[in-house]
Each structure stands twice: as structure tokens, then as C-alpha cells.
Amino acid sequence: MLDGILWVCKNILLAFYNFGFALSHPGLWLDWSDKKAIMRVVYYGGSVEFFFVVFTAFLVLTAVGIWRRQVMWGTVRLLEGLANGIGRAVAWFGLLMVLQQIMIVFLQRIFRVSEIGVGPFGYTFTKDLSWWSEELKLYNAAIVALCATYTFVQSGHVRVDLVYSAVGFRAKRAIDMAGSLLFMMPVAVLVWMYSWFFMWRHLITPKPSASDTIERLLMKARAVRWNVETIGFSPNGFNGYFLFKVLLVAFTGLVFLQAIAFFYRSFLEFVEGEESAGKYLDRDSLGAGEEAYEGTH
């Protein structure tokens, strides 16, 4: 037990030392023309140091929030506002997806057009119809990845429970807190560790590994070059599948942030009682009669 505590403390100190050194020398990791800077970003984005910096920041923010609840409420409003803002913007991709599909059907079946060109600002972007058809997957993936936390804030996910509905208000908040700490956060961290390196393996070569040390990655930096994935499923099909890897990383980050917001909200509602239920919660409404409609489903 003591060895575990000492290991955690040692890694926290090392994390702050390494990050402090990096922040005091921004040219080491912000200069994207420097191959070593790229490798530092790759390493630290999925490193133990990064984990302990985030973990310590969470503990400090939690301690400050317990001392000043308005700080915690402000964090909840900020993170839920972030999820709502991104979700409401990306949700329009659904309309864009429908309109683009209609356009593809008309151009292909009626006008027998084989390609579509878009020319904003004098630059013409022309691709085969099959490219535009496969690109619809990106809209769908963006909606799933970037609207997941928005749907969570709006209570749009399906909840299946055998105990939750039968317990009292504070027991529900305790279950929500446990779920945030024991399920949402660990799973988000685990997926982040895999998705971060998975993304970079499709952006640069030689491909980095999660087991590589910073020294090994800096050695690889001598041969590193951008090698963005452009392979499609068909000769003229969509070739930007690396964007799906970027969306996976963004999804994981948003889930982790929402886990923090959900834990803080559950804690505050647990402490303040039922009168704080739904406090500052920004949910969309379809207008008058929505409650009666939802009550039948």
C-alpha cells in the first residue's frame, strides 16, 4: 500500500516537473516544423505524466469546489455549456447529410452526373459522386462522436435500471457519483490511451507505439514525416478516414469532461438536496405540450 502511494506521489512530481519544463520552453513542443516537437506532443498526449497532471488538477478543482460551491457550479455550467454548444452545432450535420444525399440521388439518377465540384473563394474542389456518397459516413460519425455528451446532458440516452428508480433522491445522486468515478472516467482514460496513439499511427511515420518512451520517440524523430492516411474503400471513394480517428479522440475527451461535470452536479445535488435538482440545467424544449407527449413514451 505504501509503495503504491509513493509511486503515485513520485509520478505526480515527475509529471509537474516535465510539464513545467515543457511550458517554460514552448519552442520544444509548439514548433510543428521541428520533428522532435511532434514526437513530444505524441508522447505527452498519452503519457503517465499527462494523466497525473489531469488527475491532480481534478483533485485541486474538487477541493476548491467543496470549499466554494459556486466554483463547482461554475465548472458544471461551463462543461455542460460546452457539450450543449458543440452538440447543437454538430446536430445540423444531420440536415446537411439529408440534403447531400438528395443531391447525389438527383444528380446521379436523373442528370447522370459523375462528379461534383465545389468552388468557394475561387478554389474548385471536385470529387467523384462515390466520394461524396461515402463522405456521408463522416457526418454520421461526427454526430455520434460530438453529440454524445450533448445527448447525455439532455437525458436523451436510454437508461436501463433495476434499482435506480426505486431509491431516494440522495441515493440516486450517490449512484451517479459512483458511476462517474468508477465507470465514465476510467473508460474514458482507457479509450483515450488507445485512441490517441491509434490516431497518430495514421498521421505520421514511423508509427509510434504506446509503449515507446520519450527517448525512443525522440530517436524516431530523425525519420519522422507526415503520412496522413488517404486510403479509401474504392478507387474514387472517400479518402479522409483519418478524420474518424480524430473524432474518436475528441469523443473521448468530451466524455471525460462530461464525467467531471456529472460528478460535480451529482455531488452538489446530493449536498444541497432536492431543491437543487436540475439547477442551471440547460435543456432543449420542443415547446408547450412536450411534457405530456414525453409522458406517453
Rank of each mutant, 00 (worst) to 15 (best):
R69P: 07
V60I: 13
R40Y: 12
M97K: 06
L99Q: 14
G74I: 00
I38N: 05
V42Q: 13
A89E: 06
R77C: 01
I104M: 11
Y43Q: 12
Q101S: 14
T62A: 01
R40W: 12
G46A: 12
A63G: 08
A89R: 10
G74A: 02
L78M: 12
F52S: 08
E49Y: 15
M103N: 07
L78P: 01
V60D: 01
V76Q: 03
E80L: 03
A57S: 13
R40P: 11
M72H: 02
I38Y: 04
T75Q: 14
V60Q: 02
V60S: 02
L99S: 09
L99P: 03
R77G: 01
V71H: 00
V76N: 03
M103E: 10
S47V: 04
R40C: 11
L96E: 05
V76Y: 09
Y43W: 15
F52E: 12
W73M: 01
F51M: 12
W73D: 00
W92G: 05
G94H: 04
V71F: 01
G45Y: 02
M39E: 14
G45R: 02
L78F: 08
V41P: 05
V76F: 10
V76W: 05
T62H: 01
T56F: 11
V64C: 07
V53G: 06
A83Y: 10
V41G: 07
V98K: 05
A57H: 09
G45N: 03
M72W: 01
F52Q: 10
M39N: 14
L78G: 01
T75D: 09
N84D: 09
A57K: 07
W67Y: 15
V64G: 04
F93N: 09
R40G: 14
N84M: 10
F55E: 09
I66A: 09
F55K: 06
F50T: 13
F58L: 11
W67V: 06
F93Y: 12
V54Q: 07
L61Y: 09
A57T: 13
L79N: 03
R88N: 10
Y43P: 14
Q100P: 02
S47E: 05
Y43R: 10
A91C: 05
S47G: 06
Y44L: 05
F50C: 13
L95G: 04
E49P: 06
F51N: 11
F58V: 03
Y44M: 07
G45I: 03
V41S: 11
A89V: 15
G87F: 10
I86N: 08
G74Y: 00
Q100L: 15
R68A: 00
L79T: 01
R77D: 00
A89C: 13
Y43D: 12
N84Y: 10
V64F: 12
G94L: 11
V48W: 15
V98H: 03
R68N: 04
V64L: 15
V98Y: 07
V76K: 02
G81N: 06
G74H: 00
I86P: 08
E80C: 04
Y44A: 05
V42W: 08
Q101C: 14
A83P: 08
Q100N: 11
A63T: 05
G65Y: 00
M103R: 14
L99C: 07
L99V: 14
Y44T: 04
A91L: 11
L61D: 05
M97N: 13
A91Q: 09
V98I: 14
A91S: 12
L61G: 05
I104V: 13
